[in-house]
Write a protein that binds this DNA or RNA. Structure first.
Length: 567
RNA sequence: GCCCUUGUAGCUCAGCUGGAUAGAGCAUCCGCCUCCUAAGCGGAGGGUCCCCGGUUCGAAUCCGGGCAAGGGCACCA
């Protein structure tokens, strides 16, 4: 409908002899008193038209052919807006749409027939998920959900590093703890993972077997790390393999049980290394391809990518002099693989610590002549926990961090999701623990939840009086209060909120919209009584209330936040 | 030193890609339950949109230059 109106404005401009060089914008007005939609085209095109904005607005108004069943009124307003007031019967039809579509109201088809891949979390299985990972997890999941609501077929994907030094270090940590548990006195260097979870993994190993294998290696347990030796990989395999599995299961549990996040795909970095060390591996293919394009340089026994030639960045090492690839090479191979899987949209959700690495990967892909225009990289800033007005200190190495599990346990999944989603991802998030813990009106997530519970309660009250949101019996023209008009407007606008979020991939817009929605409803509640002796009025208002409930519930569903029946 | 992100009310943040009188929540102050849940509502005070230039009908928004904060600049991931 908005598109139709836009086209009609453009048609009117053309009839006035004006060439359209930038798309006409239609936005919600600042104030509903102006109308439901405003357009700044008269100001944008005034110069071209050789007229004052207000004159052009008036000319467009007279030239336009509007469908009066949709648009009741078109008006020109200073300094040069063209405002549109929607016809009540059209808005009433939106109520019918909500009631008819139910849990699907708000879906758009912008992405129909298209496939999207969203990669997020992708934390390595070397420790429990932290609060910082949580932000990426909730963002990625909700972006996926937004895309699904826009018609995309979405795959959520988790990529993790299950090779390399970090995993060997994990294995070495478990091995040394195992020896310590057996009563051996062995050093535990600072560089290793210090957390209690390492001991727990050690304890979860089959006792006899682990003891035997650990003791066989006991002679190697000095200050020099086995993980850094050529034979380290093979010797630590028993411990690192087990630890990796335990950690990965734990991470999956946190995401699925804690936050309700389910992935379709788990991709291992190992898959790109291949079994052999020859060119048949995926990273080997990438390396050969880059080399044949002259993008590779051998220097100091290492293999470098000439990033400087690609995007002006510094050259980077792809394969260390030890023969081991850096993370960049498998990353390039992984992204190449994603592209080859033919998605229409590829989204990467990364923490700020990756903000400097993805340009290299994209540059390499471009160097390989792969299409990258459909890749969207979403970078989110870090999370700091605030308690008693101060930052909670976190250090990963010393394991002095708050895990995501602990946070969810502390404040609940809905609060975690809400807090992570309510701010733009570009800004560092201060997570106020005391505020999050409150189950009172101070906590903004309850504002939304309470609005939903309140709507449900009203409908229940109606049922007691034998009244319901009966669309066929309702005379919707009775909905004449300003608050009712605003609610109709917001219900009508909701699909547009979803559609726009699908373009910007910014979940917080949905929260902002729902908060406005809840606010208007709460106010409505205080100015008007829904269930009264007036059967006709009650029925009309119950329809409105139920449509509000459905719209709010759908918004919360996108965010993955529960819409409670009562509180 | 270089790159990325950010700077809006006392605090935490929106501001719909350049428009209408810059908005919420919290905090402070004043009000509202004989009536569908007061986890709610109304009102008041509170602003150099970091600073200086530029672009134009018009800038919190775009550009340049400063200042400040966070993150990143490994043969770590």
């Amino acid at each position: 409908m908005i598109d139709q109106l836009r086209q009609e404005i453009e048609a009117a401009l053309e009839r006035l002899g004006i060439a359209i060089d930038k798309p006409v914008q239609l936005e919600r007005t600042r104030d509903l008193a102006f109308g439901d939609l405003g357009c700044n085209a008269p100001m944008v095109y005034a110069k071209q038209a050789g007229a004052k904005p207000m004159e052009l607005a008036e000319n467009i108004r007279q030239t336009m052919q509007v469908d009066t069943s949709i648009v009741l009124k078109v008006s020109a307003a200073a300094p040069g807006f063209l405002n549109f007031t929607l016809a009540d019967p059209f808005l009433h039809n939106q109520l019918r749409a909500v009631m008819g579509q139910g849990g699907n109201y708000g879906r758009s088809y912008a992405g129909a027939g298209k496939r999207a891949l969203v990669e997020f979390v992708s934390a390595n299985p070397t420790g429990p998920l932290t609060v910082g990972h949580g932000r990426g997890a909730v963002l990625g999941d909700t972006v996926s959900s937004i895309l699904a609501w826009n018609g995309y077929e979405v795959e959520r994907e988790y990529y993790y590093n299950d090779a390399g030094r970090q995993i060997r270090m994990l294995g070495e940590s478990v091995w040394r703890r195992t020896l310590q548990m057996l009563g051996e006195t062995v050093p535990f260097p600072e560089a290793l993972y210090q957390g209690d979870y390492i001991s727990q993994i050690a304890e979860s190993l089959p006792r006899q077997e682990a003891a035997e294998i650990a003791r066989n290696l006991a002679g190697e347990a000095n200050e020099e790390l086995l993980a850094d030796r050529k034979d380290g990989q093979a010797k630590l395999e028993y411990f690192s393999g087990h630890a990796k599995e335990v950690m990965f299961a734990s991470i999956s549990r946190t995401l699925a049980d804690g936050l309700g996040i389910k992935f379709q795909n788990f991709v291992n970095e190992m898959d790109f290394h291949g079994s052999g060390n020859g060119a048949e591996s995926k990273i080997g293919i990438v390396l050969d391809d880059l080399r044949s394009r002259g993008l590779i340089e051998d220097r100091d026994d290492a293999i470098w990518i000439k990033a400087a030639a690609l995007d002006g960045e510094e050259d980077r090492v792809l394969v260390k002099s030890s023969g081991e690839p850096t993370y960049r090479l498998p990353d390039i191979a992984y992204h190449k693989d994603k592209i080859e899987r033919k998605f229409d949209l590829i989204v990467d959700v990364f923490g700020a610590d990756h903000s400097d690495t993805y340009p290299d990967v994209l540059a390499a892909l471009r160097g390989l002549d792969l299409p990258i225009d459909h890749i969207r990289v979403l970078i989110h800033q870090f999370v700091s926990l605030i308690e008693e007005g101060k930052k909670v200190k976190m250090s990963t190495r010393k394991a002095a961090f708050v895990t995501l599990d602990e946070l969810i346990e502390d404040v609940g999944a809905d609060v975690v999701r809400y807090f992570f989603l309510s701010k733009v991802m570009d800004t560092p998030l201060k997570f106020d623990l005391e505020l999050a813990r409150k189950t009172s009106d101070d906590n903004p997530v309850y504002y939304l939840k309470y609005a939903h519970a309140r709507m449900v309660n009203i409908i229940k009250r109606g049922a007691v009086a034998d009244l319901g949101p009966d669309l066929s019996a309702a005379d919707l023209s009775l909905l004449a209060l300003p608050e009712e008009r605003t609610l109709l407007h917001l219900i009508w606008w909701f699909p547009e909120v979803v559609r726009r979020a699908g373009v910007t991939l910014e979940p917080h817009h949905i929260i902002v919209a729902l908060e406005e929605f809840a606010k208007v409803f709460h106010r409505y509640y205080t100015v008007a009584r829904v269930v009264t002796d007036d059967t006709a009025m009650s029925t009309a208002r119950l329809v409105l209330t139920d449509a509000c409930r459905q719209t709010l519930a759908n918004g919360l569903a996108i965010l993955g936040i529960e819409a409670p029946e009562r509180m």
